[in-house]
């Protein structure tokens, strides 16, 4: 027991939020306040005749259009098409980014050869590929999926590479000193260490996948939410354009919060890895 007394002098660090709850609540109220102010201005501007309702329909008009749109039979088809493109594009993009990132991180020769190509590829504004992909893969979903993959894999790739390469030298030395195999070091140290950074890349990939799918639909499609935006814009039904934008924002935010939740579950030690 005598051994333990020496230790008790050292305090256990408590994991406590560094802002007090009152302040936290106040910031939340400010955020909501600003949001309400924007909505109020949006509602009032067309009503007061500051802008034409054709150019900017009032907030309530948009909500009305949204409710109408959600009740249409054709809506679900367009929604499903876009959601499918986003999900498949995001999953494939993430898988490709992860695979290439891991390959480049564990195989230095491959990195030397391929890294300049990867960076060069990233320098191209990939939106310009959209018309090309329509020509290659047609007006259906596949061209949009390819577009989503092409712009979403890169953040995952680069974050995987950076995360795996940022493993502290001492951790590598520790694993070498106990004769860990490269696979053991990868699984037990490198991959978990890189996970927070990889996840940040995956979150960015989701946003990019949404952009990819929509841009693909803008350029050439006969269905999907991007197609609906184009259609309603041409019909000057701006309230419906806004309604579709609200739906797209909901898809993006929903996916983001899902990933955020997964992130917190998976990387429960995050506070620590950032403060060190």
């Amino acid at each position: 027991m005598a051994k333990i007394t020496a230790v008790e002098a050292e305090p256990v660090k408590t994991v406590s939020p560094y802002t007090n709850p009152n302040q936290e609540l106040r910031y939340k109220l400010y955020t909501i306040g600003i949001l309400l102010a924007i909505v109020a201005a949006w509602e009032m501007a067309p009503r007061l005749g500051l802008v034409s309702p054709i150019i900017l329909p009032s907030f309530s008009a948009v909500i009305g259009a949204l409710i109408t749109l959600l009740q249409q039979d054709f809506f679900l088809r367009h929604f499903t098409v876009t959601l499918t493109e986003i999900v498949i594009g995001f999953i494939l993009g993430t898988a490709i980014g992860l695979s290439i990132g891991i390959a480049l991180a564990v195989w230095p020769t491959a990195k030397r050869i391929a890294y300049p190509l990867v960076v060069g590829f990233q320098a191209i504004p990939k939106i310009v590929f959209a018309p090309l992909f329509i020509a290659w893969f047609g007006f259906g979903m596949s061209s949009k999926v390819v577009m989503a993959v092409v712009i979403s894999f890169f953040p995952v790739l680069i974050n995987t590479l950076v995360g795996l390469e940022s493993v502290p030298e001492d951790a590598r030395r520790l694993m070498r000193s106990i004769k860990a195999t490269p696979l053991q070091t990868f699984r037990k140290v490198s991959l978990p260490h890189a996970l927070p950074v990889i996840f940040a890349g995956i979150k960015a990939a989701l946003t990019f996948a949404v952009i990819g799918a929509i841009v693909g639909e803008f350029v050439g499609a006969s269905e999907g939410l991007g197609y609906l935006v184009e259609l309603y814009k041409n019909q000057l039904r701006i309230d419906r354009v806004f309604a579709v934008i609200v739906i797209l924002a909901t898809i993006g935010a929903g996916g983001y919060f899902l990933l955020e939740w997964l992130d917190r579950k998976l990387i429960f030690w995050r506070d620590d890895s950032e403060s060190k």
Partner: peptide, 17 residues
């Protein structure tokens, strides 16, 4: 490296997870 030899570094090198 040998498993009969232990190495300790300036940092604790603990895995936070």
């Amino acid at each position: 490296p040998s498993r009969k030899v232990g190495f300790m570094f300036q940092t604790a090198v603990l895995l936070p997870w």
